[in-house]
Amino acid sequence: MGLPIEILLVEDNEGDIILTKKAFERGKIMNRLHVVKNGQDALDFLYKRNGHEDVPRPDLILLDLNMPKMNGQDVLKDIKSNDDLKMIPVIVLTTSNADEDILKSYQLQASSYIRKPVDFKQFGTVIQTLQDYWFTIVKFPSKN
């Protein structure tokens, strides 16, 4: 498997984008992190439209919930109602610890719900664990 892992990060907070990038850089697995900053762009990316015609199909989506215009839950709903896109694991990565957010995300078929830690070391561990789990342990359907 020489191909890098394609990851789509849907995140509006610049700080979080940097932190996530840093955490992935430190990971052992070769990956390419694509960043979109709102829900609408995320859907454009996934449907390869509006300037996103040449992007790869992501292997994993990291989705923030609180975003302007179209929030994470709407994006999740859209992804899971598309027969092709719904196979991509979506991991909700957010600050919120509200029960209703957690419940709603799983109801909308998120693969997991992860709360961003306050501690950067912990955040690194979370990203590392995520990579290990989704790209070395879990088996996906063949890309072709």
Binding site: G15, K22, T95
Partner: peptide
């Protein structure tokens, strides 16, 4: 409660993470 769980935590998280970074 929702604001406290999200909006108050987020800037705090930024400070914590970036200071460590």
């Amino acid at each position: 409660a929702y604001v406290a769980s999200h909006d108050l935590q987020e800037p705090l998280r930024m400070v914590g993470n970036f200071v460590q970074l």
